[in-house]
Amino acid sequence: MNQLDFSLHHLPVEHFGTANDFLASSNCIERDTLMIACSDQGVAPDHVSFAKPGRFFVIQHLASSIRPANDRDEKSAIADIEFAFSQHRIKHVIICGHTGCGVIRNWIRCPDTPGVSGIRACFEKSMLKSVDQAYPGHSDEDRINALIGEHTLFQLQHLCSHAFIRHKLEAGKLSLHAWVVNDNTARVSAYDPTRGCFTFI
């Protein structure tokens, strides 16, 4: 995936984990990882990982979307996220996007899709304008890929706006991960905050 624009996000490097966190503990059977994936992903999202079955608590929501702390409503995934943290010792959170995301493509093509207007409004405000300004020369497909990568990072930023997440990060008890799955190859790219891009795991 192409280089992304560092200036669009405020995510401290020290809050990120790496794929080695899972490789080094591949035999772990504790449910210690929360994956927030897109409801448009057909297969179980945690199947792309090398972790043992049952390690991941998976939440699927439109385009893996998370409302920021100051913007809650009944359609928000944050209640499910809070439940996961209340029931399990979550040490890792993965926001998982995917290259074939029909939700994001539909939001771009059909701005007035019934039933998702509030979520899409959040998407449009935080994403479309920022990405179009940051990547003015991109082709249609490159723009889509940039949108999917940036959207994944924006959701991580929204997650970090919630106090219970921020406190765990500040205490060093939680690591963040941003992944994008290629739907054609099932290969996973993880965000490298030191380089500002997604690279294959």
Rank of each mutant, 00 (worst) to 15 (best):
R89N: 15
H47G: 06
A77V: 15
S126I: 03
H177K: 13
T185M: 02
A51Y: 01
R109K: 15
I36A: 09
R89W: 00
F56T: 09
W107D: 10
R166A: 14
I81V: 15
N184Y: 03
G149V: 03
A190T: 13
D73E: 05
C38W: 12
G54V: 00
A77D: 01
K168Q: 14
R187P: 00
I59Q: 08
C160L: 07
P111A: 04
L11M: 06
E124T: 12
L147S: 04
N2E: 09
S130C: 06
I148P: 04
Q157M: 14
I66C: 09
K168N: 06
D192V: 11
A186H: 10
E170N: 10
D40Q: 03
C96Q: 15
R55T: 10
F200H: 02
L4K: 03
G172R: 12
A19P: 00
R67P: 03
V116Q: 08
R166I: 00
I148K: 08
D112K: 11
M35L: 14
A171Y: 01
F154T: 13
L176E: 02
I95Y: 09
E141M: 05
A178G: 05
D132F: 02
F57P: 00
E170D: 15
Q3T: 09
L8I: 01
K173S: 12
A44P: 11
F154C: 01
G102F: 02
H88Q: 11
T185S: 15
H15W: 15
Q157P: 11
N70K: 12
P12R: 11
